[in-house]
Design a protein around this nucleic acid. Sequence first.
DNA 1: CTAACTGCAAATAATTTGCAGCCGT
DNA 2: ACGGCTGCAAATTATTTGCAGTTAG
Lengths: 148, 148
Amino acid sequence: MSSENPPSSLWGHDVLEAHGHRLTASRRAILAALSNQASHLNPTQILEVARRQHARLNLASLYRNLTLFTRLGLVRPLYMGESQPQYIRNDQPHHHAICVRCNIILDFDECAASGLEKLVAGRYGFQSSSHLLEIYGVCQSCQAKPAV
Amino acid sequence: MSSENPPSSLWGHDVLEAHGHRLTASRRAILAALSNQASHLNPTQILEVARRQHARLNLASLYRNLTLFTRLGLVRPLYMGESQPQYIRNDQPHHHAICVRCNIILDFDECAASGLEKLVAGRYGFQSSSHLLEIYGVCQSCQAKPAV
DNA sequence: CTAACTGCAAATAATTTGCAGCCGT
DNA sequence: ACGGCTGCAAATTATTTGCAGTTAG
């Protein structure tokens, strides 16, 4: 038939709808800015990116929505030693190796924590939804530089 | 012999000395406040605790020293969704399960990441010094409460 | 002695809040 | 329509900086 609805596959829209939240231009723009799996952006950077799509976006609304999205489990703040947290998608576990000198972040996919999720479930009755693993150290190129 | 020096075993003092930093009353008090393995304190709370030992301690000095201690690898900031980061000792890997509803933190010792540390070393030449594993979910008592 | 540190006060940065109007549903 | 959301401006909270006096080594 001709009335087929194209699946609105934009990330997060379904979750907002399912919880009765409105799909506003601000929210679309923020979600779009965060939708890239690889992006690690702080609020100021998110504002900048999202404004390319919705120029009137305001920092106050951004903060309100980051809080909402975090509560809904769409995103998660990461503290990487900078002044502001960086927000990332909360789709799947994240595994980083972070260089303590230059702050470069290496992502990798291997996961070692699913066993531990079962362990805390069994021992503490803790119902885990995702996890974050950060390995701290010095990256290859910083090892070559003289120490600070 | 009578001239034996008692080992000044206070946590962090040796590291400061080794790097040529002075052992001031402020630094002693801050280190003491953070020395407990289990403590998760934000700057405001650290100030409060450290002032019990050194009443004149100032927030500005606290921030300056938290930055120093982080650079020296003594402590590490943790972002747990509260407004300020919490500082913890950076002695050994940390493994938490964090309840996204009540923010309670369960610590546990089992470590699953040492294999991954070897992996990033081999693949990226990354020299890791420690790691952080956070499991997010809902703790047992919050599961019993009605959802927000 | 003498730089490294400190406390204080003032500046800047980050986040939150109050409110009147706008816009998704 | 009407109530959730918004942008703006102002308030609050967090962090940094300048500077003159203090103190560890």
